[in-house]
């Protein structure tokens, strides 16, 4: 209740949605094209970078996080943070197992 003053009901114009749609389509085409290139270790990096950019566009505009409260932004960030903790700490174990015993 004390946070309701933060509630700004921003209505995004359809023009923005069309631009985002086009950007997402370009991103999809780009990532498919990139997967056919020989980039060595950069293949997954490029694929994930494009996917993350697309996801960011969806989160910021389609889901309206760009126009929403700090609380929503914090919620999204905390989700990413915990997800990274799970992946990062688990992978840290798997990666360092290869280093053997000291």
């Amino acid at each position: 209740m004390s946070e309701q003053h933060e509630h700004t009901h921003h209505i995004v114009s359809p023009k923005v949605y069309v631009v985002i749609l086009l950007a997402l389509c370009v991103g999809t085409a780009l990532t498919v094209w990139a997967s056919f290139l020989e980039l060595g270790p950069w293949n997954p990096v490029v694929a994930l970078a494009i996917a993350t950019t697309k996801a960011m566009l969806v989160v910021l505009f389609f889901m309206g996080v760009k126009y929403s409260t700090k609380l929503t932004k914090l919620t999204v960030i905390s989700g990413i943070f915990t997800f990274m903790a799970l992946i990062g700490m688990t992978l840290a174990d798997y990666m360092s197992r290869a280093w053997g015993r000291w």
Binding site: T31, S35, F36, P44, A47, L48, A51, A55, V58, M63
Partner: peptide
Amino acid sequence: HFVDIIWIYLFALLYLISRH
């Protein structure tokens, strides 16, 4: 939109590992 985001990642990770 969330379901869409999951697919964006699944597509990159499952289909596009390396196509050359």
